[in-house]
Amino acid sequence: MAPARAKKHLFLNYKGGTGKTSVSTAYGYYLAGKGKRVLMVDLDAQAHLTACLNEESVYHEKSLYSVIVKGEDIRNIIVDTSLPNLKLVPSSIALSSLELPLFRMPLREFRLRKALKNAEREYDYIIIDSAPSIGLMSLNAILASDEILVPLLADFLSFHGLKILLETLASIEKDFSYYLGRIHIFLNRYNPDYAICRECEEAVRRFYPENLLKTVVRESQEIMNASSEGKSLFELYPDSKVAEDIKNLVHEVNGGEL
């Protein structure tokens, strides 16, 4: 019997600075720590996920560019990390020039999905960290994923950005006749002392009740420190509140499958 395909989870928000990379890194680390085979995919040309996993200084001859444009096998560009069952598809600034050749390719919106097919039988989870932009690579990521996680800062501008994101996802479904997987919205860097945070939480609960996760990732320094050190949050601060939040997040998204 063929091994099961990996579950592809995408961390997506067109607004920058919402914590996609920090949370997706911690998310991937936790799953790997639970014994799952995890592949992290960095789609951001800023390569922040790559930096969080301490691979930014390493020169990689091949990148997603060769995979997407030239049809190279994605397994040829996967690199190891500090954890044995946590692998990475690294990014670099070269990724910023990917959209132009991609634009002229057939099935240009499905190239990433096709590329991941080569690897999805070898992993339990593929975690994709997308760039904060509405572009062809972002569209590739959306159409490649099974579930979408939207980290949301608890303020008005993020709430407005969420409106744009959800409407864009709705139009993608319509344009491609393709129904997306579940969409999970969770509040990140939440501070209950701020009235605006409480108002935002109330608004999300009121208008998007089916998509809002109960778990809230609170504001913390630990997750920022872990990102800056390129190490796992669970290695540096295993008993922190934010570590607990990430665990709850993983369990809430995956339910009893974990």
């Binding site: 709430f159 409106k163 959800l166 709705a170 479904e173 129904y179 109330e202 998007y208």
Partner: peptide
């Protein structure tokens, strides 16, 4: 907040 709610929602699978 109520003036900035998505007018269309993705249907999902």
């Amino acid at each position: 907040f109520e003036d900035n709610v998505a007018s269309q929602m993705p249907k999902t699978k």
